[in-house]
Design a binder for these strands. Structure first.
Ligand SMILES: [Mn+2]
Ligand SMILES: [Mn+2]
Ligand SMILES: [Zn+2]
Ligand SMILES: [Zn+2]
Lengths: 133, 133
DNA sequence: TGGATTATTAGAATGATTCTAAACTACAAA
DNA sequence: TTTGTAGTTTAGAATCATTCTAATAATCCA
């Protein structure tokens, strides 16, 4: 059984050709940052036909099941991240590309006091890059 | 001359009633995080009529002139921040509200190596909050 | 194998933002 | 003051990412 389909079985989703294609893309690259548009473009280039709605349905479903994580980078589009570790990102705006920053590449010597009655839900750190002059 | 209009004169924009209203709102609260929709709702409540296009035109123009800063929080909408200091944010998703974190409330004991050929453009830190239990 | 459940899809709907082009206003030169 | 011009506002259309709808198709398992 395909690795992709083992994953689908584990999370109780039927192994359709569309899902398998999406998951195989994710597995192949191991650590992926992808958007719906980038993914459909990639698949269409490989002559694999799929609708945009299916891409969204599945990326969101995989995020719900904890296989992917959703990232807000800028207001343009939703990113899906296959790296499930705690980590942060560089954003290369010229290439429109995210680069992982391992959790232990950043450490804090001082962290802010959380407002009372609240607890931390998630920390999002994005370091935007530009070209050296 | 109104404080708002002094600002407009300094940045070479004509003091229209719409602009004056927008800037007065920003000044009154001193440190503001606002979105276009929140602002138009506020102004309409005060019986001040203005079009959404004008809100966007002006918030963007003020951002261009360095009077406001644009913030990406999530993909829903653009935020405009009147706090020009280097700082970070808590995001209270229940209230849909941003809270400033002063630059010196966070310090780093380790910072990641910037990829070669690139330099840091901006650092964006958002700590999303949820209610305790 | 049949029927229920789940999935895919095209196209419509939604929401934020920008664009267009026409009407209006501020400003300053005469 | 008047008036021409550049700058501004506006309604509504356009755009783009995303979600929804409801019809069709595939998967599953009794
Ligand atoms: Mn953006
Ligand atoms: Mn969002
Ligand atoms: Zn990542
Ligand atoms: Zn702020």
């Amino acid at each position: 059984m395909l690795e992709a389909n083992k994953i689908l079985k584990k999370i109780n989703l039927r192994p359709t050709t569309q899902r398998t294609a999406i998951i195989e893309y994710i597995l192949q690259k191991h650590k992926v940052h992808i958007t719906a548009t980038k993914l459909i473009t990639h698949l269409k280039k490989k002559k694999f036909n799929i609708s945009l709605a299916t891409i969204y349905n599945n990326l969101n479903e995989l995020a719900d099941k904890g296989i992917l994580r959703k990232l807000h980078v800028n207001n343009d589009k939703m990113w899906f991240d296959s790296n499930l570790q705690d980590h942060y990102h560089f954003y290369d705006s010229e290439k429109d590309e995210l680069i992982d920053i391992d959790k232990n590449e950043i450490s804090f010597s001082k962290i802010p006091k959380i407002p009372r009655g609240k607890i931390k839900d998630s920390i999002n750190i994005i370091i935007s890059l530009k070209s050296k002059n």
